[in-house]
Computed example of a mutant assay.
Amino acid sequence: MSQYSGKITFYEGKCFTGRKLEVCGSCGSFQDQGFLNRVNSICVQSGAWVCFDHPNFRGQQYILEHGEYPDFYRWNGRSDHLGSCRPVGMHGEHYRIQIFEGSHFSGPSLELTEDCSFLQGQGWDKTCINALKVYGDGAWVLYEEPNYRGRMYVVERGEFSNFNAWQARSASVQSIRRVINYF
């Protein structure tokens, strides 16, 4: 599959009510589109998206895949504040990620091609990842807690020499999953 941007609609009110903003590509600032940063529900018609609680693709990240989110709790939001979004780059269906204990790709490493709800259960004896390489076509979501919970960070094809490169607050990562629901 080639990269596909998709379509996402943001609503000010819960359950898809109030003013709305439809987006079909990257949007660096909802306010620049005449839409306040208050978002209480979202409908993802197609594509996979990463939304940020601040403009210019900064701050807390939220991954949203095809489906409906009638309130901000459904996308693990802590408030109704979002400021920007972009489609997740999807290039195909071949997933491969390599995680490293040390920054700059040093120390022990582990390669994954499937979701992992608890890295320590796969033999990774640390609760942190300090670098990673995404080799495959698809994107991945890193979670600070086991079972795909806590803060999340989206990584796409490329090399990330330290946790700052994927905009994380710390190197804490305990579960990883593929972004697969993008139609």
Rank of each mutant, 00 (worst) to 15 (best):
G89A: 11
H54W: 00
H94C: 13
P55N: 14
G83Y: 04
P70M: 14
E93N: 10
D71K: 04
V88I: 12
I63F: 07
L82Y: 01
L64A: 08
Q60D: 04
P55R: 14
D71F: 12
E93H: 10
N76V: 10
G77E: 07
D53P: 02
P70Q: 13
A48E: 01
S79E: 11
H54G: 01
G77T: 14
H81V: 06
G47T: 05
G89C: 15
H81L: 07
R74V: 06
D71M: 08
E93G: 14
E65R: 03
V50D: 04
P55F: 11
C85K: 02
W49Q: 10
H54D: 00
L64T: 07
S79I: 05
H66L: 12
G59A: 00
H91K: 11
G59V: 01
V50H: 02
R86N: 06
G83T: 08
P55A: 15
F57S: 02
V50S: 03
S46H: 11
H81S: 09
D71T: 12
F57P: 04
C51L: 15
H91Y: 15
W75H: 13
C51W: 05
F72Q: 01
P70H: 08
F57V: 07
N76Q: 15
E65S: 04
P70E: 13
L82A: 02
E68R: 03
Y69R: 00
W75I: 15
F52C: 03
R86D: 08
V88Q: 01
V50E: 01
S46A: 14
G89H: 09
G67E: 06
Q60F: 04
P55D: 15
H94L: 11
A48H: 03
E68W: 03
A48G: 10
F52V: 03
S46M: 13
H91L: 14
G83P: 08
G92N: 12
R86I: 08
R74D: 11
Q61L: 06
C51G: 08
S79R: 09
S79M: 08
M90W: 02
P70N: 07
N56W: 05
F72E: 00
H91I: 14
S79K: 14
D80V: 12
C51A: 15
L82N: 00
S84R: 03
G67A: 13
D80A: 15
S84H: 08
G89S: 10
R74S: 13
N56M: 05
H94A: 12
G77A: 12
S46N: 09
P87I: 04
G89F: 10
Y73Q: 14
D53S: 10
H66A: 09
Q60T: 06
Y69C: 02
E65D: 05
R86V: 06
Y69L: 01
F72K: 05
P70T: 07
H91E: 15
Q61M: 10
Q60K: 08
H81K: 13
C51H: 03
G89T: 09
P70V: 12
F72Y: 10
N76C: 14
G83F: 09
C85F: 04
H91Q: 12
R58F: 00
M90I: 04
